[in-house]
Structure formats: structure tokens, C-alpha cells
């Protein structure tokens, strides 16, 4: 089995899982398929020799989907799956048609137009010789993309503040809700 065949297998699985993420009724099923989806994407990255990105994909999204899980568990009970029938209205059908048509057109164009991608300097062999994928990514990030790196910290800071502002109520806002935990000490 060549690399290309393996890619087709992975791509087909990714597509299937993506459809299941959108299509399944139960939000936990969606979340689980999202896990599969991201794991398989990591597999595709690994096949493209982007080892670091593959590892990070698994590492970060593992946590991210746990958030989704917890959110679902917080808001829904097990039995309360939405059993309502999915109603498809005419605008929905039109939108689906347009999306499908664009997909076909894009696929056609991609297949017809000769690939513009060229082999760059950083072939897998060159990366291995330079000291491995992680090392090369690090060197580029800390020299060429210095400013985006520093800005990323501000982005993370913003996310921290935002999550607390949204999720954390001030204690003054709910007096009397604080229970004493010292009962069983």
C-alpha cells in the first residue's frame, strides 16, 4: 500500500467523521466523532512529514474537546437527546445545492489545473539533516515569525480574561450560594 492509498483511506475516514459530527443527533456522539476527526487529521499531517503539527494537533485538541464534552455534560442530561425530527426547509435545500455545486466545481478545477505547488527547500531529508521537525519549526518561529509569536501571548491573555469574564460570576452577585465545605473535616 503506497502513501497515496493510505491518504485516500484517511481522507475518506475524515470526511465520514466530519459528516457524522454535523449529522449525529446526540452531542456527545458529535464530540466523539470530532475526536476521531482530529486524530485522523493528525495522521494526515504525519504523512506529510509535519510531525510537530501532528503531535500538537492531538495534544491541544484533546483538551479542547474535553471542554466541549464538559459543556455538553453540564447542559444536557443523558435522556434529553433532541428527538425532534430534522425539518428541511426550501432555503436549506437551496444552500445545500449551492454548497454541493461549489464543491464539485472546486474539485473539478483542482483536478484539471496543474499543481502550482513546487518542491521547496525544506524537503523531509533537509529537515532531518537540520535537526528534526520540531527544531526547524522552532527556529523559524523564533526568528522569522518573532512578532506573531509575541502577539500569540497577548491572544492567549485575551482568551484567559474573556473566559473568566464569561464563566466566572462575581461572588457579590450571588450571596448565600456559598456552601460551607467544612462539614466533614
Amino acid at each position: 500500500m503506497t502513501q497515496l492509498h493510505l491518504f485516500y483511506v484517511f481522507a475518506a475516514l475524515v470526511t465520514f467523521c466530519s459528516v457524522m459530527v454535523v449529522g449525529s443527533r446526540n452531542p456527545v456522539t458529535s464530540a466523539v466523532f470530532l475526536v476521531f476527526d482530529l486524530f485522523l487529521l493528525a495522521g494526515i499531517y504525519a504523512m506529510m512529514e509535519a510531525h510537530f503539527v501532528a503531535a500538537i494537533q492531538v495534544l491541544v485538541y484533546a483538551g479542547a474537546i474535553v471542554v466541549l464534552f464538559v459543556f455538553v455534560i453540564m447542559l444536557l442530561n443523558l435522556e434529553q437527546e433532541s428527538h425532534g425530527k430534522v425539518r428541511v426547509s426550501i432555503p436549506d435545500i437551496v444552500m445545500m445545492g449551492i454548497t454541493g455545486l461549489s464543491f464539485v466545481i472546486i474539485a473539478f478545477l483542482v483536478a484539471r489545473v496543474p499543481s502550482m505547488a513546487t518542491v521547496g527547500e525544506m524537503t523531509p531529508e533537509a529537515i532531518a539533516a537540520a535537526g528534526g521537525n520540531t527544531y526547524v519549526v522552532g527556529m523559524v518561529l523564533f526568528t522569522k515569525y518573532l512578532w506573531p509569536f509575541e502577539l500569540a501571548s497577548i491572544l492567549i491573555l485575551l482568551a484567559m480574561v474573556a473566559s473568566i469574564v464569561i464563566a466566572k460570576k462575581d461572588k457579590a452577585a450571588k450571596p448565600g450560594r456559598r456552601r460551607t465545605v467544612n462539614a466533614n473535616q
Binding site: L59, F71, M74, S153, I156, S163, A167
Partner: peptide, 17 residues
């Protein structure tokens, strides 16, 4: 639990950098 999970992601990204 939700807040912990979000903070985990943020610090995880930091660790990766």
C-alpha cells in the same frame, strides 16, 4: 469544570511554545 478545561487549553498552548 468548564473554566478549568478552558484554562488548561490556554496553558497547554503556552507549554507547547
Amino acid at each position: 469544570f468548564y473554566l478549568t478545561a478552558i484554562l488548561f487549553i490556554l496553558f497547554d498552548i503556552e507549554t507547547i511554545f
